[in-house]
Simulated scan of single mutants.
Amino acid sequence: MTITDETIDYVAKLAKLELSGEEKESAKKDLSSILNYIDTMNELDTSEMEPMSHVFPIKNVFREDVVVNEADRDNLLSNAPVKKDGCFIVPKTVE
């Protein structure tokens, strides 16, 4: 793929950049070298490589979700200012 001035202008517009003529030429060289490197990588035989999502082996670092305290109704209601029949009594909010 050849990098043209139109391509550089389009990418600069997407990135909301204003490039001078010298910066456009530099960007054209950089993008060309990046694409050439990608072409080189595409020549490699990766048919026997297992796909991976990350370079490093990552394991789940989260702990198991284990319930450590159970809902104890009497304990929960011990701090309630008003209670009736094992429930909280709250002021009426809707008339």
Results as ranks from 00 to 15, higher is better:
residue 2 T to P: 01
residue 2 T to W: 05
residue 7 T to R: 04
residue 9 D to C: 00
residue 10 Y to F: 04
residue 10 Y to I: 04
residue 11 V to T: 09
residue 11 V to K: 14
residue 12 A to K: 01
residue 13 K to D: 07
residue 15 A to M: 15
residue 16 K to I: 12
residue 16 K to W: 07
residue 18 E to R: 06
residue 19 L to I: 05
residue 20 S to L: 02
residue 21 G to H: 02
residue 23 E to H: 03
residue 23 E to F: 00
residue 24 K to A: 01
residue 25 E to Y: 00
residue 26 S to P: 02
residue 26 S to T: 15
residue 27 A to R: 01
residue 27 A to N: 03
residue 29 K to M: 11
residue 30 D to M: 07
residue 31 L to E: 01
residue 31 L to T: 01
residue 32 S to M: 05
residue 33 S to L: 10
residue 34 I to M: 14
residue 35 L to F: 05
residue 37 Y to C: 08
residue 38 I to M: 14
residue 38 I to G: 07
residue 39 D to Q: 13
residue 39 D to W: 00
residue 40 T to S: 12
residue 44 L to T: 09
residue 44 L to A: 10
residue 45 D to K: 07
residue 46 T to E: 07
residue 47 S to M: 00
residue 47 S to Q: 05
residue 48 E to M: 11
residue 51 P to T: 02
residue 51 P to R: 03
residue 54 H to K: 09
residue 56 F to R: 11
residue 57 P to W: 03
residue 58 I to A: 07
residue 58 I to N: 05
residue 60 N to W: 12
residue 60 N to Q: 09
residue 62 F to P: 00
residue 63 R to N: 13
residue 63 R to I: 04
residue 63 R to A: 14
residue 64 E to C: 04
residue 67 V to H: 02
residue 69 N to E: 12
residue 69 N to I: 14
residue 70 E to R: 13
residue 70 E to Y: 13
residue 71 A to P: 06
residue 72 D to V: 12
residue 72 D to S: 07
residue 72 D to Y: 06
residue 73 R to P: 15
residue 73 R to F: 13
residue 73 R to G: 08
residue 73 R to C: 08
residue 74 D to G: 11
residue 77 L to C: 04
residue 80 A to H: 03
residue 80 A to Y: 07
residue 80 A to I: 02
residue 81 P to H: 07
residue 82 V to C: 00
residue 82 V to G: 01
residue 82 V to A: 00
residue 82 V to M: 03
residue 84 K to D: 10
residue 84 K to F: 08
residue 85 D to P: 00
residue 86 G to I: 05
residue 87 C to Y: 15
residue 89 I to H: 06
residue 91 P to M: 04
residue 91 P to I: 05
residue 92 K to W: 06
residue 93 T to M: 15
residue 93 T to C: 09
residue 94 V to A: 09
residue 94 V to P: 00
residue 95 E to P: 14
